[in-house]
Write a protein that binds this DNA or RNA. Structure first.
Lengths: 256, 256
DNA sequence: CGTTGGTTTGATTAATGTCAACGCACGTGG
DNA sequence: CCACGTGCGTTGACATTAATCAAACCAACG
């Protein structure tokens, strides 16, 4: 199977063959996590970096009042904790939604990656897109009603999956219950259900047995106010001309 | 006046004197922006990095339906667009809320900073805290009612201002209208008002003429479910022992 | 003074949550 | 093979919460 990670990263700019070889290497030692399992929990001290190869995972927090909030989805090709080097403690948990195939990358391996300019730049960019996605989610929760909110999420997931070759023709598997969708959107499960019904009644989507079909991407995007600019992928054409200096992150000697 | 930037960055770890000197230098050429002025707008191609020295700024988006959503506050000591090097286009706007004193840092200057290991690590850490803050805001919007939501925000702002020596004794100026608060919290201005009244009636805060007093930080934090772990400042003690290798980001030769 | 921008309040409407029940598909064990 | 339990989705009735509309108020400022 094609390496999804390479496919995703190259959307942000081409990588030399040597970098791709490294990535191919890294992806070899993967491990299956069952659905609804924590990969790392709030309070843990992170050690390795995790990379999702297959399946859906999420960042989430459980609140004191018994509710929970999902703050991000991690799809195939996404890194979980590149911040391993800087933050001493997880301030949230990462868990699987479906069964996942996950690579556990030891720190030296990451440093090896960061020593390569093109790769380092690309990883940085992926991180910034994650951040932009968080901002868009805030917009979504703050200023869009339930149906548009869910529609927007579906547009985003569709686009992100398309970037790694999983969504085809607006059709993809969404291995998530409506309760989990509710915990993502800040709504009740009942209301999520009604919003989904409404999206169906308007012929914007189809959804059965966790199989989503976006019937008309344009119509759904317009309905939900979805603009993909925050994903910054744009075929990567203008990307190249930008920033005449490229960056690499290299290891220096220990300070302690 | 003390350099707020240095004060903030050193919460994440000590900096060598040479780094502090560089920061002192950088801060010299600042510029005043009037209240409610864009520093940079959605769609713009970012060039320089901006640093807030004084005043409140925010990231925001205007939506098609005429509403807007504020996604982050930038307080004194905060950088606005460290992503300048990687993303080609702003996917949101940054504007002042109050009058602001802003430094405009040219790219080479930033590279100079990133060449210094301690400084680079610290800047990276600040970026990660920004990201964690975005996640916490999602939790806030998704799973906390209006009064708790606003209370949580006030706790956060108080703590962040305290970190740079602006908030003293839970007392600080919040140069923001209730409409802007509403655009931050995803609520109507009327409802924000009622929630504020409620916080006052419970003797959790005082607020007049944009002067906030948190009457009992512990009580407010408990009420709002505020846990500051996501700000990762913790006096920076354990921070040091973490990550035996430190990182620096250095310029490499141009790729184009 | 009169105007302006922001806050506060009340009345009403609309949106969302909660509670409870039912249905359906699936798997399990008798 | 069937009875049963379980998890999820769906629906309706109702309670609660928040938005909207409108007006009054208040301090600052020309």
């Amino acid at each position: 199977m094609e390496n999804r990670l390479i496919r995703k990263l190259e959307l942000f700019g081409p990588l030399p063959d040597s970098d791709k070889k490294l990535l191919d290497d890294i992806v070899k030692n993967s491990q299956i996590y069952a659905a609804h399992t924590d990969i790392i929990s709030e309070g843990d001290i992170p050690t390795n970096v995790h990379l999702i190869l297959e399946g859906f995972a999420c960042r989430y927090k459980n609140l004191a009042n018994g509710t929970r909030q999902i703050m991000a989805y991690m799809l195939p090709g996404d890194f979980c904790d590149l911040h391993v080097f800087v933050l001493r403690q997880m301030d949230h948990s990462i868990g699987t939604l479906s069964q996942c195939d996950v690579v556990d990358i030891p720190r030296p391996r990451i440093l090896e990656m960061l020593e390569r300019p093109a790769l380092a730049r690309t990883l940085w960019m992926a991180t910034l897109v994650d951040e932009a996605t968080l901002r868009e989610w805030i917009v979504n929760m703050g200023r869009r009603g339930p149906a548009k909110r869910i529609g927007h999420l579906l547009c985003e997931i569709n686009m992100r999956l398309k970037m790694v070759g999983i969504s085809i023709d607006g059709r993809f598997r969404l291995p998530i219950t409506q309760v989990e969708l509710a915990d993502t959107m800040g709504l009740s499960n009942v209301h999520v259900n009604r919003a989904l019904m409404m999206l169906r009644k308007r012929d914007l989507i189809t959804l059965e047995k966790q199989e989503v079909v976006i019937l008309d991407a344009g119509k759904l995007e317009e309905f939900a106010g979805f603009t993909p600019n925050y994903l910054h992928f744009s075929g990567g054409k203008e990307e190249q001309s930008r920033s005449s200096e490229s960056l690499s992150i290299v290891r220096t000697k220990a300070s302690a």
